[in-house]
Write a protein that binds this DNA or RNA. Sequence first.
RNA 1: GGCCCUAUCGUCUAGCGGUCUAGGACGUGGCCCUUUCAAGGCCAAAACACGGGUUCGAGUCCCGUUAGGGUCACCA
Length: 567
Amino acid sequence: MRRKHNMTDHQALAALLFPDVTTTPRDWLERYPPRPLPEGAQVTRFAPSPTGFVHIGSIMASLVSRRVAHQTGGVFILRIEDTDKKREQDGSVEMIVRSLLNFDLAPDEGIISIDPEVEAGSYAPYTQSERGEMYWAFAKYLVEKGLAYPAFDTEAELDQTRKLQEAQRVKPGYYGRWARWRDASLDDVQARLAAGEQPVIRVRAPFPAEGRAKFVDAIKGPLDLPENDQDAVLLKSSNRLPTYHFAHVVDDTLMRVNLVIRGDEWLPSAPLHVQLFDFIDQPLPTYAHVAPIAKMDGSSKRKISKRKDPEANVAYYYEQGYPVQAVTEYLLNLANSDFYDWRKANPTAPNSEFEVKLDRMGVASPLFDPVKLNDISKDIIATYTAEQVFDYAINWAGQYNPRLVAILNLDRAYSLKVFNVERTGEAPRKDIVNWSDIERACGLFFDDLFNEAIAANGYPFPNVEAAAIEKILGRGMSFDPAQPKEEWLAAMRAYAEELGFARDVKTFKKDPTAFKGHFGDMMMVLRVGLSGKTNTPDLYEMQQTLGVDRVQQRLKRAAEYVRERAL
RNA sequence: GGCCCUAUCGUCUAGCGGUCUAGGACGUGGCCCUUUCAAGGCCAAAACACGGGUUCGAGUCCCGUUAGGGUCACCA
């Protein structure tokens, strides 16, 4: 195969390859003109492939993308990258859109709603399998310019080449002299075409490549990478749809995306992208490569994977019942660690008022920290009203714990009272981590859950003699809800002394043998009798909430339990 | 292995040549408050990977070593 390319050859080749393509890049660029946006407006996108899985990292990248777009008066696009039909899963697009909507990340363009499905925006279509003509126009243009060519290698041939390269210890790939079809004659191409074979279209990368791909990453700073020399596949043979690389370049050009926020696993292919933008004579968007969220696996760190790590899947956060706001603020915290300072200074402001800054994002992979997430979640739930807690809990339980729905709905007013316990004061309780934690934190108030706990664990009474326990439980029966808290406490303290308990811990510690225990021990008996637990909300409030009937019922039952055990 | 990215308390990080005997938060420990728990308040332990340079001066700049991570598909 002699090298004998000239302009005419390239054009003949392009005509041969794309006989039906009549449009040019110029046509498409005119059809999708630059956006009439203010100076500095950032157009960003989330471009998932519909594989039936939404990764928490995708939510983080979308969160950042959307915030940055909106902060600058720009646009956030959802584009579906469905060029690999083999990997596609039914219902994925719906799942993606719902996840975005769930996290308050509604896109401005693309599929913005499901049921009914609505595609918004004037740079449509936003689904790659529907954009074939655009890719073909650009591919044809590249072939005409001699910057791309068809290749008919079979999988086996490619394998063979790779093995040879391994044996010779040279760089693997399709490039330079290994690129068999790089300089094939028009006749050879024609013959294969005539035989019905479908080629891939590959970029003709410079070889040897001696240049550098330089650009400033919005997160990582100035980058200086070796120029691409791989003749990467632009269009696949099976369906003539583009690979990620070509789709990225064509779509982000035509959708007028100017800020590409993506996972940093794309960094190694950035030089290819830089080259492709150059080949189609279009400006390079700004890149922002986000480090993946990682976790420890034994003693080594790795990015969280959808196969091994439940927390990689957004479904995990739904199932656990983390409020959207909690996950959002956790991610915001990972993105910009000064978020926390902002939150402290603005305790009630919506987090959308926090300005996300790309250059404040860390360059290394942060470790996923469930403890921190829980902490944030507790704080956030503590700011909710009882009504909000009730609504969120019901909403969550409807999907993940149907029995809890029944329990909470049995007496809505009562449930609201329960969620209001120690919620309205200066320091609201922070004991609910997420909605799946409600049973643990509030179960004692609901008879069914309470009964189950008693059946399973009995009463964890403190080390106090049975006779005293019975007396204390008996005294608790006379609880008068009309009595003010301080009065009640004073009366209980007096009763404690009457029974032979120390009035406080200090008194007790001075001479432990002189008492049956201290005031706290006595109160603990009451607490356990009422709740079956040693840690509960404030006893007085608990009684107020449970109500006289329930208080008496429970204390009676606890007394029976003690009596039976004493025999 | 090639290429690339990264390296400050256990974790997330602040730090952009002197103000660093390195700051904050989560977590941990202690104390206080207290009817238990949660919360809250106070206090504490806890880090610049290593080695060379540059400089009057380095956590901060450069080089190397080491260690992590990413990537090398007709997948995105």
